[in-house]
């Protein structure tokens, strides 16, 4: 196997394992973060009506 094929094999295996890891590691946390996001948006008072309002929300 050439150096190129070794590199490509590593990339493909890493891509596959990475996707599985991402699904296992991110999904449940993302769902709870979505709930928090929706709760924040539901509780938000109607702000001023221009983009300056959006900037005021930012950290």
């Amino acid at each position: 196997m050439t150096a190129w094929m070794t590199l490509w094999t590593i990339l493909i295996v890493a891509g596959g394992l990475g996707m599985v890891g991402l699904l296992l590691g991110v999904t449940s946390g993302a769902v709870s973060e979505l709930k928090e996001t929706l709760a924040e948006l539901s509780g938000e008072e109607a702000g001023p009506e221009t983009e300056g309002a959006a900037q005021a929300d930012s950290p």
């Binding site: 946390g29 973060e33 948006l41 109607a46 702000g47």
Partner: peptide
């Protein structure tokens, strides 16, 4: 949940890392 333009365009800038990554 759409209240203002920030909510419509950038979800009120409320995204945390896992949700943003997903």
């Amino acid at each position: 949940f759409v209240g203002n333009i920030a909510g419509y365009l950038v979800a009120g800038r409320t995204l945390r890392i896992r949700l943003a990554l997903a």
